[in-house]
Amino acid sequence: MAEKRHSEYILETIHVTKQFGGLVAVKDLSIQVPHQSIYSVIGPNGAGKTTFFNCITGFYKVTEGDILLDGESIAGLRPDIIVKKGISRTYQNIRLFQNLTALENVMVGHHPRMKAGWLGAVLNTPATRQEEAATRKLAMELLEFVGLKGVEHELATNLPYGMQRRLEIARALASEPKLLLLDEPTAGMNPSETEEMTAFIDNLRKEMGITVLLIEHDMRVVMSISDTITVLDYGEKIAEGKPEEVRANPRVIEAYLGRGAATQHEAKAA
């Protein structure tokens, strides 16, 4: 997947604002995500993180601003076009195709990279058969990669929670994305599962060369794998930088723990 790069950043958002009626969910947000990095967006509940994801994937139309994928504007495009261009995602509350098998779920993920149409399927042309077989093979490999070998034919709804999380990632990977958006991938996991998932995400970048944009609540996860962190509060960016910089930022502490904690911190530093 060593494609030619057109821009220094795989993803760039330029003064993105999203408004629902009077409510400003995301306000004037600009971030720059370098190629093959792990970039995290954190913030308290309701800070607008998921809304921001929905803007990037085209599920919401941005009110103002622009979004560039490798230098090309994708703002205002339909979700199915955006995934074709190379962004795919997972959901905070797992949203698998419950009554399809694990294998089918991943094969659906490969949909945008396939061509077969109605007639090809009915006539069962050699091209269709080849494509189908290749997709199946790819899906099997992805399932093995995320550690779901052996449950390919189970219905998604019957899989345990942790497996469903990984299946969702496999499905997202099947569209061969350049940029993967993970929305709280460790939510509801116990510490050892979380550790496993953290290693897995790190591995994604190393083995597949995929850039990861991450929303996460678990600070240990964020601090251990992120290259850059952006902190949102009330839809606005209040801090940005390397993990250690963000950790020490009084505005971040204030947003997370309240004003008192921030003054204490400052007093200690002084």
Binding site: F59, R78, D80, V83, V108, H111, M114, R171
Partner: peptide
């Protein structure tokens, strides 16, 4: 025809849409 379509790309897209329309769209289904 129905049997062919069911297990093909088109059929999977239909079933994905049945399960969750928004996610199906986010997976590249028009």
């Amino acid at each position: 025809i129905a049997w062919r379509l069911r297990d093909a790309r088109v059929g999977r897209a239909w079933k994905a849409m049945r399960e969750d329309e928004d996610v199906a769209e986010a997976m590249g289904i028009h």
